[in-house]
Computed example of a mutant assay.
Amino acid sequence: MSEEFITLTENSGVLNNKTIFITGASRGIGRAIALKCAADGANIVIAAKSAEPHPKLPGTIFSVAKEVENAGGKALALQVDVRDEQRVEQAMAEAVDKFGGIDTVINNAGAINLTNVESTPPKRYDLMQSINSRAVYLTAHLAIPYLKKADNPHILSLCPPLNIQPKWLGPFAPYALSKFGMTILSLGLAEELREVGISVNTLWPRTLVATAAIEFAVGNREMFKQSRKPGIMADAAYEVLTTQDAALSGRQLIDEELLAERGVKDFTGYAHNPANADNLTKDLFLD
């Protein structure tokens, strides 16, 4: 496991033999969460499009599957486009066939384009809505029957707390709509599924996280100096997934805030450049 994905909090073994279906898990935050959970003995379904190596973006579903197994988990690498209803349905069935069920769904796959309405082509608009907000609906719709049979089931979506201010909407309303749509669906699901015990949460980073999205869609690799490593999101996700009895359900969580609640006091080790740990840039949608 590369140093940038090493996490800082301890594992408890709570996720041993739990099956976690993660979209977009071949790179970035999804991969970090996969490896964190694998180290706890989880079964990881790596549901992503990246089956072939990319010249600029390292990592495929198969390379992450090997890393998952090396970390102590079991892996199922599935090429999945979250826009394709039949493929998502089939992938979940394959996961159940291999591991016996699904305990958690993590909506990590995402599309980003920081442009305003005038500058956003319809194809790009549709892409963001379908990969971001629609996928939360689709994965939940298809997974709920399996999650109802699980012990301590979770749906976790990587999207921001609602912050409907003009400064976030004017510059890139199409992207904001897709991400806030994920959050609204999650809040609705938390209420819809409360009586059946399925916990639903959103999770968002306090600061920029050093991923391909930051390098290629937001700025450049220089911004990594102002970012944290994906491990902070993996640790926060782990805290969510190991919480029992839907105690967090309905909360719009921030990684740093949740980890502080769980006793983490020093966040320096999460910084991509620890020497710059006090000069990090807040992520989008956070004041």
Rank of each mutant, 00 (worst) to 15 (best):
L8G: 08
L8H: 15
N11R: 15
S12Q: 12
G13T: 07
N16R: 15
T23G: 08
A25H: 10
R27C: 08
R27F: 05
G28S: 09
I29W: 01
L35K: 11
K36A: 13
A39W: 06
N43A: 02
N43C: 09
V45G: 07
A47T: 07
K49F: 03
H54K: 07
P55C: 05
K56P: 01
K56M: 11
A65E: 03
A65P: 07
A71Y: 05
A71W: 04
G73M: 03
G73L: 00
K74D: 11
L78Q: 08
D81C: 05
V82L: 04
R87W: 06
A91C: 06
A91E: 05
A95C: 08
N107C: 13
G110D: 10
P121I: 00
P122L: 09
P122C: 01
K123N: 14
Y125N: 01
M128C: 02
M128R: 03
R134Q: 13
R134N: 12
Y137S: 02
T139I: 04
H141I: 06
I144E: 10
L147V: 11
L147M: 05
D151I: 05
N152D: 15
I155N: 02
L156E: 06
L158Q: 02
L158P: 02
P160K: 11
P161L: 04
N163Y: 05
I164A: 14
I164R: 12
Q165C: 05
W168G: 06
G170F: 05
L177R: 02
G181H: 11
M182Y: 12
T183F: 09
L185G: 00
S186C: 14
G188E: 03
E192D: 14
E195R: 12
T202I: 03
T202R: 00
T202K: 00
W204L: 03
P205Q: 09
P205N: 08
R206P: 01
T207N: 14
V209W: 04
T211W: 01
T211C: 01
A213L: 13
A213S: 12
E215L: 06
G219Q: 09
R221V: 04
E222A: 15
Q226K: 15
K229M: 11
M233V: 00
D235N: 09
D235C: 09
D235I: 12
Y238Q: 12
Y238N: 07
E239L: 15
E239I: 10
T242K: 13
A247H: 09
A247I: 08
L248Q: 10
L248V: 03
S249C: 11
S249W: 13
R251I: 05
R251Y: 00
D255F: 01
D255M: 06
E256F: 14
E256M: 13
E256L: 13
R262F: 07
K265T: 15
T268D: 09
G269H: 03
A271N: 12
A275T: 05
N276D: 13
L280G: 08
T281K: 14
K282H: 13
D283I: 00
D283G: 14
